[in-house]
Amino acid sequence: MPTLANYLLASGILFAVGLGGVMLRRSIIIIFMSLEIMLNAANLALIAFSRYGLVSGHQVFDAQILVFFIITVAAAEVAVGLAIIVSLYRARQTTHVEDLDTLKF
């Protein structure tokens, strides 16, 4: 039987993979995909706590409701983010973050 630590470590490693993608990749689309991986790693931890933390033998579904809301917000975020990337590409003809340094000090 898998322990809670197994799930938390899997979730943490997945989060670290997403964090690595955000910090090491230079294409804005791949950075956006890595953000999605990080959101999903948090979801895995929430679902694991929801299954392991029983109250007198019964499951409490609050964590799963939170995951439901996170999935909805992430869908809205993807739509808006990709629209921003498209209008950025129209203005600059690039998706490489090092070429988008107008706001850099």
Binding site: M1, P2, T3, L4, A5, L8, Y52, L54, G57, H58
Partner: peptide, 8 residues
Amino acid sequence: FAQTIPTL
């Protein structure tokens, strides 16, 4: 965190 999956 070392507990295995509890039965419902």
